[in-house]
């Protein structure tokens, strides 16, 4: 059981938990993830470490309410317990280059944030490009704005905040002006795919943090397999970071959609059960 020490709400659907986990706090690195099983009947769901403190023995992760597990998590409070947390898993993020564009889209912004912070701490010049469908879905803006960035770009599909359009617009400008020598992207598949395509045009290396469905997270089940450069690799042990230029994006998108119908059913079942309790 893992005790929630602190709960922070960033926006209607975005939360951060600080959880007591002394062993894990000593071993976590940016880009690595943990797997949560909220309760006895819960699914195992991966979340990236947002922060950790080995002296105080806690770890933090940020999540956005998108499905049943995150909905259940959002209802927990300080002092409550999470049934199981396993980690750290995956390989830490390693970014070459000194001038880096960090591109985050949607829920992926929760993963982009600790990476951007780490790169700032490493003394690199960091440009952040935040993307979302609209202003309400653009999470962690204040947190990003507080980092010592070279520049912060915001794009929304509907123009309700920042530039109207997609993340590749500012990315192309950064590439064009020779401001960056590498990039990191995390978010929806089309966003990562087109970021990789833009970077390819300018021969800028780009790493993407992939988010396929996982079950065990330790390389045992093969659920999170991805095609990278013609090789079948496991995001949980070989990643989650990969050379974005080599990723088979269509394959990833298909696999991510494997349980769309079941996810909807799970939420419906959960809401009905909640309604019964009320």
């Amino acid at each position: 059981m893992f005790k929630i020490l602190k709960k922070t709400q960033f926006s209607e659907k975005v939360f951060e938990f600080r959880v007591e986990a002394p062993r894990m706090a000593k071993k976590a690195h940016a880009g690595q993830f943990l797997m949560v099983r909220a309760d006895e009947t819960g699914e195992r769901v991966p979340f990236t470490f947002a922060n950790w403190n080995p002296e105080e023995g806690w770890i933090e992760f940020i999540f956005m309410v998108v499905g049943k597990t995150t909905q259940c998590l959002s209802q927990l409070n300080e002092g409550d317990y999470i049934r199981d947390i396993t980690g750290p898993l995956g390989k830490p993020t390693e970014i070459e280059g000194d001038r880096v564009a960090v591109i985050g889209g949607g829920v992926g912004l929760a993963i982009a944030y600790p990476v951007a912070r780490m790169l700032c701490e490493q003394g690199k010049k960091v440009y952040v490009i935040m993307g979302a469908r609209n202003k309400d879905l653009l999470i962690l803006f204040e947190q990003f704005a507080a980092l010592p960035l070279e520049e912060l770009f915001v794009t929304t599909d509907d123009g309700s905040m920042g530039e109207k359009g997609v993340v590749t617009l500012p990315l192309a400008r950064l590439c064009e002006s020779d401001a960056i020598d590498s990039a990191f992207a995390v978010g929806p598949v089309p966003m990562m795919k087109f970021s990789a395509r833009t970077c390819r045009e300018y021969k800028i290396p780009i790493v993407a943090s992939l988010n396929p469905i996982m079950v065990d997270g330790t390389g045992m089940c093969g659920c999170c397999r991805v095609e990278v450069g013609g090789e079948t690799l496991f995001a949980c042990v070989d990643g989650p970071d990969f050379n974005a230029d080599l990723v088979d994006w269509d394959d990833l998108a298909h696999r991510q959609a494997s349980y769309k119908a079941e996810e909807a059913l799970s939420i419906k079942h959960h809401e009905e059960a909640c309604a019964c309790q009320k």
């Binding site: 009947t41 699914e43 079950v215 089940c221 799970s266 079942h269």
Partner: peptide, 18 residues
Amino acid sequence: LTRTNLMKAYEFPIYDTP
């Protein structure tokens, strides 16, 4: 088998794993 045995997917949606 992991979905079925460990995560009890055969009891979905009582268990969350599909």
